[in-house]
């Protein structure tokens, strides 16, 4: 079972005593949105972890990653906030921090890169962490759940765990900027021609839809800045996906999810109706691995994804 523990709840030697030899353990950073308006993402991630046989240990005292926005007010604060999070992971003996949000991934990796590449920046961060007795040693690696699925679980293994294959459901991948760009920070795969989501879609029995919008921006970060701009960005991307035959969208980012699920209705005036249901990555993978659909929070989406699952005879 995945658990949530504070660093002080779990003495360092406790891990080795309590875990079974097969269970892999990861630090888990859910991010703000999975704890606020996209709770279904948090819940389906935990259910997926159980199916995968991994243990996600939530870093419950971790702060927001900075969400790309605090950079606009101060050049150091996101780096030091994330150093604090990494220090908590290290105190738990965890060097892997797993994220479920593209924006968290990009900005936490950027902070970690800045810290690990410069002794001066590391010392600067640790001087502040030292005020409350914390220290970051630089051992943490930040990865998205998507990369964990491919690197640690493996596509062949994932394929063998599928009990409800998607029957060729045509799914359009939507990456979200910060899991791929800039390549100097992420670099796990080509930012211009990524295929990890396509690989996962195919491993769980779907058909990946190729379209130009898959690596473009959803507009979430400027949704409040000027009317219609983010809505148009969603409409433009979903129009491309729809024209390539997509029946649904999958995204590893809850910010993209809020935008794609939330603004398609409003984008119809300029871009035509698209009505593509948008799955969180762990929702669709957990469904294929046999988690009952009523536990995945599919009823929380504005564009109900259950209809397309019924159409494909995937649920009754």
């Amino acid at each position: 079972m995945s658990t949530t523990l504070l660093p002080e709840d779990l003495p360092l030697d406790a891990h080795t005593r309590t875990r079974s030899a097969q269970t892999k353990r990861y630090g888990f950073f859910p991010g703000c949105v999975a704890k606020e308006s996209c709770k279904e993402l948090f819940n389906s991630t935990m259910l997926l972890a159980d199916k995968l046989g991994i243990e996600l240990i939530e870093l419950t005292a971790a702060s927001c990653c900075g969400a790309s926005v605090v950079n606009d007010v101060n050049r150091d604060v996101a780096r030091v906030l994330n150093a604090r999070t990494y220090a908590q992971a290290e105190a738990l003996g965890l060097d892997d921090v797993i994220t479920i949000c593209s924006t968290c991934t990009g900005h936490m990796r950027a902070a970690n890169k800045e810290l690990r590449e410069s002794e001066a920046r590391m010392d600067h961060a640790n001087a502040i962490l030292g005020k409350f007795g914390a220290k970051y040693q630089g051992t943490v690696t930040v990865r998205h759940l998507l990369w964990l699925l491919i690197d640690d679980i493996g596509l062949d293994n994932l394929r063998s765990m599928v009990v409800h294959p998607l029957n060729g459901l045509k799914v359009a991948p939507f990456y979200g900027c910060h899991i791929i760009r800039p390549e100097s920070v992420n670099g796990w795969e080509s930012a211009r021609n990524p295929h990890s989501l396509e690989d996962v879609i195919e491993a769980i029995g779907g058909e990946a839809v190729d379209y130009a919008g898959k690596t473009r921006c959803c507009g979430f970060h400027i949704q409040l800045e000027k009317d219609n701009v983010a809505t148009d960005m969603v409409g433009q991307n979903m129009r491309m996906a729809k024209e390539r035959g997509a029946e649904a969208v999958i995204t590893p980012c809850p910010l993209c999810h809020l935008a794609l699920d939330g603004y398609q209705a409003d984008s119809a005036a300029r871009w035509g109706r698209t009505d593509l249901p948008t799955f969180h990555l762990p929702q669709l993978v957990a469904f294929a691995l046999g988690v009952p659909p009523d536990k995945l929070g599919l009823n929380k989406h504005l564009i109900d994804p259950r209809d397309v699952l019924v159409d494909r005879d995937l649920i009754a």
Binding site: G106, C177, R181, P182, S184, G219, H221, I222, A230
Partner: peptide
């Protein structure tokens, strides 16, 4: 001229 309309997408990287 909409400085703050940058969507933080890093396409210009």
């Amino acid at each position: 001229d909409y400085l703050w309309l940058c969507a933080h997408c890093y396409a210009c990287s």
